[in-house]
């Protein structure tokens, strides 16, 4: 058995533009970012006390967003993560579906590769379909988009449609400048808690 080749895909969507477009209309949404490139993408779109970027605990982005969404039912909670991080905690999609917070939306930036470790292929490169898994887990909506037209439709759904929902966005493999959020977990914790006081 051979591992699928990584880096062959040429999807047109660029991750930084996709995330910047999404977050331009986030309002007071809370954003949880999975470790690695999604955390840098979210930070590149503008650091905010309402962002909680992870630097570790791989597989925890969806559970963390779920706990936040249940605690803050009147706030939109966006989890923005990668295909590798999502695969490591894939069972959390079933837990999110079961808990069913309507304010939770999950975005998987799927470049079919582990970007932080040298672009080795993830299982999605071989055909694993995260949106199909999300649908089968019982999420209210779950889709994949791979071009501008698809993203245009999905953007509205991600920001406003009752969830819990999931959108896989196929993005190109790119080497991008690192835009790092604070790495002190206590700073990230305190600024989010303070921003939610009012």
């Amino acid at each position: 058995m051979t591992a699928p080749a990584a880096g062959k895909q040429q999807y047109p969507l660029r991750r930084r533009a996709v995330v910047a477009d999404l977050l331009a209309e986030r309002g007071d949404s809370l954003v949880v970012a999975g470790l690695g490139a999604p955390a840098w993408d979210v930070t590149a779109a503008g650091d905010s006390p309402l962002n909680f970027p992870l630097w570790g605990a791989m597989g925890s982005a969806v559970p963390l967003g779920l706990g936040l969404a249940l605690a803050r039912p009147r706030r939109r909670v966006l989890v923005i993560t990668g295909d590798g991080e999502m695969l490591m905690g894939i069972g959390a999609l079933a837990t999110a579906a079961l808990a069913a917070p309507t304010n939770l939306a999950i975005v998987v930036l799927d470049n079919e590769a582990y970007g932080e470790t040298g672009n080795q292929a993830t299982h999605t490169a071989a055909g694993a379909d995260i949106a199909a898994i999300g649908a089968a887990a019982g999420l209210v909506w779950s889709r994949t988009v791979a071009d501008d037209a698809g993203f245009e439709v999905a953007r509205h759904q991600i920001l406003t449609a009752p969830g819990p929902g999931l959108c896989v966005i196929k993005v190109r493999i790119e080497q991008l400048p690192l835009v790092l959020p604070p790495r002190d977990g206590v700073v990230l914790r305190d600024r989010l808690r303070a921003a939610l006081q009012d």
Binding site: L30, V32, F52, A57, G59, S60, A61, V62, P63, L64, G65, L66, G67, L68, A69, L70, A71, R72, G89, A92, T95, R189, L192, R193, L196
Partner: peptide, 11 residues
Amino acid sequence: IGLLAGAWLGG
């Protein structure tokens, strides 16, 4: 662990 982290961050 992630769930309870999110819960507490949200109050």
